[in-house]
Simulated assay, not measured.
Amino acid sequence: MSERKSAFAPVAERDARVLILGSLPGEASLAERRYYAHPRNRFWHLVGHTIGQDLVSLAYEARLDALKVARIALWDTVASARREGSLDAAIREADHAPLAELVATLPDLRAVGFNGRTSAAIGRPQLAASRLALIDLPSSSPAYAAMPLADKERLWARLADFLA
């Protein structure tokens, strides 16, 4: 049986306006203990495009600092699960993260972006009664290559409306 894998702690400042939720860190991220570590994952590119800053060229801690300055928080919808490999389709026995508890600590929060279908399927029901804009985003994962990058950039850029 596959081993149980756990999400990282949220990266969130009290003044965050946008929360971006993934599903569960993949193998590369777990190995490096950092969000979106796979070199072909487009997360840092897409968020950088949204805030008008090149995040890809920055060191990890500087990326996190840039998100905090932009008032973007990060977390995952799955607190822990069994999963062989990195694909969301392989997630089993998932324990969901307490999203409503985190959201309650972020008084300036305006929107939640779900990075991919699994994140949305798990997170939307938990936050459906909130006052927040819930935005489904195309996955930044290299496993989701069906959509051109320019289309992903356009859809992710909608988050900027909630940062101003």
Rank of each mutant, 00 (worst) to 15 (best):
F8A: 06
G22W: 11
G52D: 10
A7K: 00
A128V: 08
E84W: 01
V56C: 13
A100M: 13
R83C: 14
H38M: 01
A70I: 08
M1K: 11
A157Q: 13
R124L: 01
E32L: 14
R117K: 14
A104I: 09
E3R: 03
H96G: 02
D76W: 09
L64H: 05
I91L: 15
V103I: 02
D136Y: 01
I135S: 00
E61D: 15
D161L: 14
S119R: 01
G85N: 12
R92T: 10
E84V: 00
I20H: 11
F43P: 01
G123S: 02
I51H: 12
L102N: 13
D95T: 08
A16N: 08
N41I: 08
A128T: 03
A66Q: 04
H49D: 15
P138S: 00
A150K: 05
L149V: 13
A164I: 00
K5H: 15
R92Q: 15
Q53A: 10
R14V: 02
L127A: 06
M1Y: 05
G26M: 07
R131H: 15
R4W: 01
S80N: 14
K5T: 06
R14T: 06
P107Q: 10
L155G: 06
G48T: 03
A73L: 12
A143C: 07
E3Y: 03
A133V: 03
L46P: 01
G52I: 13
E61R: 01
G48H: 00
S80C: 08
A7E: 10
V112N: 07
W156Y: 15
W75F: 10
L46N: 05
N41T: 10
V78L: 10
W156H: 12
T105K: 14
D76A: 04
L106Y: 03
H49T: 10
I72L: 09
T50E: 12
L19S: 01
A73N: 09
L155I: 06
L24C: 00
R63K: 15
R110E: 08
R82W: 04
K5E: 10
S29F: 12
K68W: 03
D65S: 14
R33S: 15
L159I: 12
K5C: 14
V103D: 12
V47Y: 13
